[in-house]
Design a protein around this nucleic acid. Structure first.
Lengths: 194, 194
DNA sequence: ACACAAGCGGAACCAGACTCACCTTATGGA
DNA sequence: TCCATAAGGTGAGTCTGGTTCCGCTTGTGT
């Protein structure tokens, strides 16, 4: 089943329009925009929307995928330019800033963490991998503690970035992130009973 | 408008039944139990449910209030028995364990953090105050860094405890909590450019 | 006992996601 | 160029689940 047919021209156009309308709505902040509205503002009917996307959630997921893509690319770049712990620090802040931009990254992370649906499963996995990549580098370099895993850290980040963008939340997010990072650093030979 | 009338006997009974049915459902884990089911299993009709609770959310809130009450009482007790930082550490773990017990504390914290509705506003405030209490004590004792506030910490905890109770999540929660605590401790005279 | 306000039941209502039977149109081959 | 046809589009209708409303029932004070 490899792209059996290249997708008709108007269909692609509509799909595009839908995605961009949805992006507008979701990343804009209206997390529970009605499907009808999205379809309408893309100039199509709901039926068309459902032709392209299994379900409302699927649409959201699609919108967020790109966002996640960008994010997942970052670790490699950061590691190329910085020491592992610095790379990690920057990545954490990158997440916060992404969220800060009002681009709704918070919603993304939140959704990724909060939904059981298998749809977000892969996003979750990919983000976790990105983090693991950073952690491993730091562990290898001996600057990051070795008892934390990517998924674990992802949880924490989900919490932080899932914060509702209220008054002054960027400050809070930065604080917590700094806190977390401090905790992640390897300080001393580590005692061995928890 | 002080308890104008003591509430009829059967009414109180029903209210009680509703709360306990709801508690059963929500704290049990079925976060989106249908209102119909709850009413039914309390032996009443939906109309009755709505007589007692403005809305579905209001019911949930009521259920969680007690949970929050317990939690908010803990800091004072802990501070009476332990050094501030130890008290803080224990409190953090207490939260995790609460959640672990399957009592759905996770759902509680998550809801508290995730909902905009003013209904959870007070719960949020109270939890934040509890944390502030602990932090302040630690700051006064010089064992906890002084740049973190209750609300900030609450965010982080919301994230941690909001984790979906999946395989092995208790481990993760403990880890992150430990991490956070490490970050909270005052280590050195603190450099002063972020 | 009685009156009557407080309670209760549950059918009706509404909102919003999702489906389907039918119409429209891009496309590729004659 | 034109047609057959399958891909694509439509939107009224279904389904699900929360919320409302009004007539009946019942606890309570006299």
């Amino acid at each position: 089943m490899p792209a059996s047919r290249p997708l008709r021209a108007d269909a692609r156009r509509n799909r595009e329009a839908l995605l961009s309308a949805a992006r507008e709505a979701f990343l804009g902040g209206d997390t529970d925009a009605h499907i009808e509205v999205i379809a309408r503002s893309a100039g199509v009917a709901v039926g068309t929307l459902y032709r392209h996307f299994e379900t409302r959630e699927a649409l959201i997921e699609e919108v967020y995928r790109k966002e996640v893509d960008d994010l997942c690319a970052a670790p490699a770049e950061l590691l190329a330019k910085h020491a592992p712990d610095e790379a990690l620090r920057r990545f954490l802040l990158l997440l916060v800033d992404h969220a800060a931009v009002g681009k709704g990254m918070s919603v993304v992370l939140e959704s990724i963490m909060a939904t059981d649906s298998p749809i977000f499963q892969t996003a979750r996995t990919r983000m976790a991998n990105a983090l693991t990549q950073l952690l491993d580098a730091g562990i290898a370099a001996g600057t990051i503690r070795d008892d934390v895993t990517g998924p674990t850290l992802l949880r924490a980040l989900g919490g932080i970035c899932g914060m509702r963008p209220t008054e002054g939340w960027v400050e809070e997010a930065r604080q917590i992130t700094a806190l977390l990072f401090d905790g992640l650093r390897r300080r001393q030979p580590e005692p061995d009973n928890p």
